[in-house]
Computed example of a mutant assay.
Amino acid sequence: MFYIHCPYCGEHREEEEFHPKGQAHIARPQDPDACSDEEWGDYLFFRDNPRGIHHELWVHAVGCRKFFNVTRNTVTYDILETYKIGEQPSVTAESLASAEKTAGVQVADGGQQAVGASDSAVKDSRGAKV
């Protein structure tokens, strides 16, 4: 079991209180009526499933019932940050890889997973720097 920080409640709660809802930051087409069937189907059904850093939409189902975003490493299941809807992530696969290169840290998984990195950009689930 692990704990997740809710950015609205400000508390660390057990994972059973939360439910993942899929990929975050999916832009709805501006004019759905002008979309082809293929474009609309891509929007509705196709999602990224990367190995490494991934931004996900979660809901605090048992607490405040608000939706929020999580940056999670899908390889290690580590939650790197949580942030409110409408905010942008501070941790991305690109920023993590570039920080590791500047720190001279060896990168595994094609830049997706840090190996022994002491990266100041990585935050724990409370938002505190690790």
Rank of each mutant, 00 (worst) to 15 (best):
T92I: 06
H25N: 11
Q88F: 06
E38I: 02
R47V: 07
L57T: 14
E87L: 08
A93K: 11
E87C: 12
W40R: 10
K21N: 09
D42H: 07
R47K: 13
A97H: 07
H12V: 03
V107W: 04
H60F: 00
Q23A: 06
D119C: 15
S95K: 13
V107L: 15
E16A: 05
E38A: 03
K101R: 13
A99Q: 05
G10L: 05
G10C: 07
E15D: 04
Y77G: 03
G63F: 03
Q88P: 01
I79A: 10
L96C: 03
Q112C: 11
T74C: 05
E39S: 04
D33S: 10
S95L: 10
M1L: 07
E87T: 04
P7G: 04
G110L: 07
H19C: 06
H25L: 13
V105W: 06
N69M: 01
D119N: 15
S98R: 10
A117P: 08
P29D: 06
R47D: 09
S95C: 02
V115A: 11
L80N: 13
N73C: 15
Q113R: 11
C9I: 01
G63V: 02
D37A: 03
K84R: 15
L44E: 15
E17P: 00
H60W: 01
R13I: 04
E100M: 12
K66C: 08
Y3E: 13
T76D: 09
A93L: 05
K84L: 11
H54T: 02
G52S: 09
I4Y: 03
E17L: 01
E14K: 02
E87V: 03
A93F: 01
H54E: 09
D42S: 07
A34N: 06
Y8T: 05
E100V: 00
Y77R: 14
A114D: 11
C64P: 04
V105L: 07
A103L: 13
C9E: 07
E56M: 15
V91C: 09
N69Y: 10
H55Q: 12
R28N: 01
M1A: 12
F46K: 14
D42W: 02
E16Y: 03
T71V: 14
E100P: 00
I53N: 03
N49R: 12
A108I: 14
L44C: 15
V70W: 09
L44W: 06
C64E: 01
T82Y: 09
C64I: 02
G22N: 06
G10S: 09
E81M: 06
D119A: 15
A121R: 14
I26K: 10
D109K: 01
Y3K: 14
T74D: 05
A99S: 11
A97W: 02
A93E: 13
A103M: 07
F18S: 02
C64W: 01
R72W: 02
S118E: 14
A27D: 10
F45S: 12
R126L: 14
A99I: 00
G116L: 05
G63W: 03
S120N: 11
D78R: 14
W58F: 15
Q88Y: 06
N73R: 06
I26N: 04
G52P: 08
I79N: 11
A114T: 13
T102E: 14
D33K: 10
H19I: 12
I4V: 15
D42C: 04
Y77C: 10
E56C: 12
V107I: 14
E17A: 05
E14P: 01
A103F: 01
Q106F: 07
A99M: 02
Q106A: 10
V91Q: 03
Q113H: 08
C35K: 01
G110D: 13
G52C: 07
